[in-house]
Design a protein around this nucleic acid. Structure first.
Lengths: 222, 222
DNA sequence: GGATTATGTTACCAATTGGTAACTTTTTCA
DNA sequence: TGAAAAAGTTACCAATTGGTAACATAATCC
């Protein structure tokens, strides 16, 4: 009805507010990307957005609310539902473990595609930062299906598979984190596409080797 | 000759200076541990150490110099020489790959034992932080033997081994990083000893599986 | 002794921080 | 048109930041 371009024609949609809200969110992104954790704050964000900082308090309820809005708007948390859906949608004869491996690699690729989000994720490893309150505030409800995958033996009921999953999860996440800032990681250029693909090839290789050994040796390789 | 406790008996050792220098370094550690990246600075460190901040400038040449001194004093960088020595010192019949796996695990354990150092390492993943100038300043000379291990096919001249090494390096480092702040990682209590040991058991398992597959299948498991 | 140097403290500076109050301008709607 | 609400700005606040100059105290050396 009202697209916001015809003032007075219909219910108020407050198009100017949404626009500045978007500008503020984008400014948060920019400042975090350029100045990092220590440079971010209401002053820097407001200046970057070209608005007065009272708007941040009025629209987002302060800095923490801004962080929370930014996190939700940028898909900060993984959706384990995606993996569950992929597994359910797979054809009967498909290799479930291969789907799992590709999911981990795809997840790392998605993180790599959003360096700023990844930066915020790294900051979570530091413990309490200025982002923490906002992130915990917005985390409510995320990761609801997480336990289905990992706890009580995991989705596959096999401790060996869970171990493999955890180790490869750790590996892919670390590689993604290194890829944002590290030019050379053990000879790999993770920040370039070919270097990244080479790393993911290594992940696939190790994954397959481990799976082969599990199936061949009955899970005991000692 | 002069142990510093007998003023005037011998050349000046300036024991008071070393003591306050140590106090400042310890204060840096404490502030980084409690307040994190964003809380650290000359004011906080000087207050924590119970001295005036001019001493930081006089003794360390400023904040960056303090960071550099702290990093070197706390063994911030891995010594790949340690691994090379371990490999060289191993008995002829020993499994070199197993030594390598245990080295990675030991390295992760050492990082876990110094949470503050680990925190600083994580901050390096964020790119430019307030610690970066000091760390790069002190990095000179470290990692001299690194290329021997990883580049040009690595120490073993086998790309498969290098891939395994890189992936497991990534996994152990990520697990160490998560262990400082994360109470529950996929069902594992990484911040407690049994949870950590369980994770390291998983690392060993996957490592051995991959090695077994490499040896059994000639390196091709597709 | 006296002169010198090392050590440490207090005081100050401009710049910036998070946060709020008061104000002006624009838009909405009867 | 005119009142009311929303949007946005300027101005201010106390607190803190990194950094330096000036000062006081203590130890050392001739």
């Amino acid at each position: 009805m009202n697209d916001g371009t015809h003032p007075g024609a219909g219910p108020p949609v407050q198009p100017r507010r949404s626009a500045t809200e978007a500008a503020i969110l984008q400014a948060f992104d920019d400042v975090l990307a350029s100045d990092g954790l220590e440079g971010i704050g209401v002053n820097a964000v407001a200046t970057k957005a070209g608005v007065g900082k009272p708007l941040i308090y009025r629209y987002f309820g302060g800095f923490d609310g801004l962080v929370a809005a930014w996190a939700t708007a940028n898909g900060f948390w993984d959706d384990d539902e995606g993996l569950l859906a992929d597994l359910a949608a797979a054809p009967p004869g498909a290799d479930q473990l291969e789907i799992l491996c590709e999911y981990l690699i795809g997840q790392a690729a998605r993180m790599r595609a959003k360096p700023v989000v990844l930066k915020a994720k790294i900051s979570e490893l530091l413990g309490e930062t200025s982002l923490t309150p906002g992130l915990t505030q917005a985390r409510t409800g995320a990761g609801a299906h997480h336990h289905e995958l990992y706890e009580d033996g995991g989705l596959f009921g096999d401790p060996d598979v869970v171990a493999l999953l955890i180790v490869m999860h750790a590996a892919t996440h670390y590689l993604a984190m290194r890829s944002v800032t590290t030019a050379n990681f053990n000879g790999l250029q993770l920040n370039q596409n070919d270097g990244w693909e080479a790393a993911m090839g290594m992940v696939r290789k190790v994954f397959k080797e481990a799976v082969a050994a599990q199936r061949g040796g009955g899970g005991d390789v000692a």
